[in-house]
Design a protein around this nucleic acid. Structure first.
Lengths: 228, 228
DNA sequence: GCCCCTTTTGACGCGTTTCTGACGCCCCCG
DNA sequence: CGGGGGCGTCAGAAACGCGTCAAAAGGGGC
């Protein structure tokens, strides 16, 4: 869940933002002044900060600098000031975006999404499992590498593809038709002999005892299953 | 040097931007329409794109999508449209910022700086690798230099680009399509012969025994992998 | 306008991968 | 106890991808 820190001293603005953000399943913290904002940011590590420049206790730009001292969290500045100088100052202090009041909620939310999106790490595999380990070998799905007894195992494209599908469905039974179509393409639903040949290759390369497979299990008449 | 791609069909705007940007030592390319923009982006790999939405040949949002298909380069949208919907659409399509015309040059430049700044790699502490060393040669990603036996190795731009992609993905397999698109541009997904030619060049220049590569590994049918 | 470096393109041989058919085994079922 | 379907294994044939070389085309600098 994305966490937002809203910093503003006007309760009605905070309320409007909080309602809209929560409705879109953001997690929201709110701070009425700069000191609280810096404190909350440190304690809660928000994914994005919405910051009003007109705070009662300190200059908004100081808040930006305070944050930038230790974090690259996206900062979206809200302000009633329209002058160019104000904007330039805030942006150069480290803000990511600057929206003038009165603002449209839709636009603000879109800018928020943009700020959060570009802060996301590159690889899609965020919480995804990338390395699968068994007692005999290790499969690294990101690097497309298979390791056995400390040495890399060479797999052909088809072998790798088949392995990938099975491992990604670890523990589950994968039907022969599904397997065939995912590896060879949608028009290959019945060539089960392909499966037999390539499962044999995989077992020969990865199983300790290929004739008594412990990880690549055949479910007769149905399909195959990868077991860790 | 920071490279900017300006996309606008109004010559006077382009001129104003180019003058201001060059005065601040940016390197500037300009495109009058969407097709040229996509082409130039692929060829020149700008660090930031300034994009007018009102183009003669295609919808600006399509240009955004075209870019986002293969790159995360910051996109700063310029537009005469003030409506919230337009902004939301552009931002959600992948734009990073949205400035309405007429715009203040100071503000635009500040937003440009902000966009470039946050796209910068995490410097210093966070473990961004800049120098990669193997037993045969050293690659300095920041200085764009390769050293072998104490002397610099001359690489052509394409060779360097290819090397950079491989090294940045060190240890991971990089698919041929990905490699082609990152180095030659999004429309080059299938020209695998380019890869063969340039991998051979890299090996000849960097491998101790080019015919038995130890660092630039071919994974037949899939792609290439750089191993330290 | 000319020259040189880089990029693109085409052709060829070779090794590897994929496809294909044949055979025997095992297990389930009649 | 016999039959059959599904599975594993093997090996040869066809197809494909890779490395290599060389020449043409392109582009930038002088």
């Amino acid at each position: 869940m994305t966490r937002v820190l809203v910093v503003d001293d006007e309760p009605q603005i905070v309320r409007a933002l909080v309602i809209n953000l929560k409705a879109r399943t953001y997690e929201v913290d709110a701070a009425p002044d700069g000191a609280t904002a810096l404190e909350l940011a440190a304690a809660r590590h928000p994914d994005v900060v919405v910051l009003d420049l007109g705070l009662p206790d300190m200059d908004g730009v100081e808040v930006i600098k305070g944050l930038r001292g230790w974090t690259r969290v996206p900062i979206l500045v809200l302000s009633a000031r329209h002058t160019s100088d104000e904007k330039v100052e805030a942006l150069d202090a480290g803000a990511d975006d600057y929206v003038t009041k009165p603002f449209g909620m839709d636009e603000l939310l879109a800018r928020l999404r943009a700020a959060v999106r570009r802060a996301e790490p590159v690889g899609g595999g965020d919480g995804e499992v990338v390395v699968v380990e068994t007692d005999g070998f290790t499969v690294d799905l990101a690097a497309k590498k298979v390791n056995r007894d400390g040495r890399d195992v060479r797999l052909t494209p088809t072998e790798w593809h088949l392995l990938e599908v099975l491992v990604r469905n670890g523990g589950r039974l994968v039907g022969q038709k599904q397997l065939l179509q995912e590896v060879w393409g949608p028009s290959y639903g019945t060539e089960t002999n392909y499966l037999r040949v390539y499962m044999a290759q995989l077992r020969r390369k990865l199983e300790a005892d290929p004739s008594h497979p412990r990880h690549f299990i055949t479910e007769p008449g149905m399909g195959y299953r990868f077991e860790r």
